[in-house]
């Protein structure tokens, strides 16, 4: 396993559309934010690009804390992407 791994998890409709619960990825060092990571994923994984298109509104958590597109991501992080929440 590479030392520069980011674990990307998907939930709910986004998970079903991607067809995977989790991807372990090693983007280049310049991919330093959630937004950049999403662009990089969409460019490299057609299923992710299609899922993003079908789920234009999304939320993100980094290491189980809600984050924003500008939030920094680094190797070792778990980045969870999901549609806006609908509990309660």
């Amino acid at each position: 396993m590479s030392d520069a791994v980011i674990e990307v998890r998907f939930f709910a409709a986004l998970r079903e559309r991607v067809g995977e619960e989790m991807l372990r990825v090693s983007p280049p060092a310049e991919v330093g934010t959630v937004a950049a990571l999403c662009d990089w994923l969409a460019a490299g994984y057609p299923a992710v690009a299609a899922a993003f298109e079908a789920t234009p509104r999304r939320m993100v958590a980094i290491n189980e804390e809600l984050a924003t597109p500008d939030s920094a991501v680094a190797a070792g992080d778990t980045v969870a992407l999901f549609p806006p929440v609908t509990g309660g």
Binding site: A12, A13, V85, T86, G88
Partner: peptide, 23 residues
């Protein structure tokens, strides 16, 4: 706050199957 910030997602079952509920 729970309804807008806590990670939980609903699916509905109707005559035409299961569908995710939109926020």
């Amino acid at each position: 706050i729970l309804k807008s910030q806590v990670p939980l997602w609903k699916k509905e079952l109707s005559d035409d199957g299961w569908h995710w509920v939109e926020a």
